[in-house]
C-alpha cells in the first residue's frame, strides 16, 4: 500500500461518481432565498402580523436551516461516514449547554440589580415610564409589547 495513495486519494472517492453541480446551484439559491425569508419575518413583525419573539424564533429557524444546508451539502457531510456524528453532535450539544447555563445568572441579571446599579443601568428612552425600577423587573418577553406601544404612540 503506497503511502501517497493512502494519504490523498484512497478514501476520497465516495461521492465522486458524478458532479453535484446542479445540486450545489440549488443549495446556493435556497440559501439566498432563505436570507430573504429572514428579512420577511422582520417585515411581518413591522406590520404587526407576528410578535417580536415569534419573528426572532422564525429567524433562528431560518438560520438553522441555512446552517444545515451549508453543513450537509457544501461541507459534504451528507457523503461522509458515521464519524460526522461523533464530531458534530458533542460540539453542538456542548455549545448549547454553555449558553443555557449562562441564562439563569447572566441572562436574568436585571432581576437582582441593586438600587445603585439600577440608577446607573441604561434607561429605556421612554418618557412615560417614570418609575424605571418597575420596568426592570419585567421579563424581557414584554419588550416587544413595549416597542409596539411606542410605535402606536
Amino acid at each position: 500500500m503506497d503511502h501517497e495513495t493512502h494519504d490523498t486519494e484512497h478514501h476520497e472517492e465516495h461521492h465522486g461518481e458524478h458532479s453535484h453541480l446542479r445540486l450545489f446551484i440549488g443549495v446556493a439559491i435556497a440559501l439566498a432565498v432563505l436570507t430573504g425569508l429572514s428579512f420577511s419575518t422582520e417585515f411581518l413583525f413591522e406590520n404587526n402580523i407576528i410578535s417580536k419573539g415569534m419573528s426572532w424564533f422564525l429567524m433562528m429557524v431560518v438560520s438553522c436551516a441555512k446552517a444545515l444546508l451549508v453543513i450537509v451539502y457544501f461541507m459534504h457531510l451528507k457523503w461522509e461516514t458515521n464519524w460526522k456524528w461523533v464530531l458534530t453532535i458533542p460540539a453542538s450539544v456542548m455549545s448549547l449547554f454553555l449558553v443555557l447555563m449562562l441564562i439563569p445568572d447572566v441572562g436574568n441579571r436585571t432581576n437582582h440589580y441593586t438600587r445603585e446599579r439600577l440608577d446607573h443601568a441604561a434607561l429605556p428612552t421612554k418618557p412615560e415610564s417614570d418609575d424605571h425600577a418597575t420596568t426592570h423587573d419585567e421579563s424581557h418577553g414584554t419588550e416587544s409589547d413595549d416597542l409596539e406601544d411606542d410605535a402606536n404612540h
Binding site: 449562562l102 445568572d105 441579571r109 440608577d119 443601568a121
Partner: peptide, 24 residues
C-alpha cells in the same frame, strides 16, 4: 463590569456586564 462601580473613589464609566459571566 457592572454599572455604577465606585472604585478607589472614582466612577468606573463603562458597564452593563456581569462579573459572573467571566466566572462561568
Amino acid at each position: 463590569v457592572p454599572e455604577g462601580l465606585v472604585i478607589n473613589n472614582a466612577d468606573a464609566e463603562s458597564g452593563g456586564g456581569q462579573p459572573l459571566l467571566w466566572q462561568h
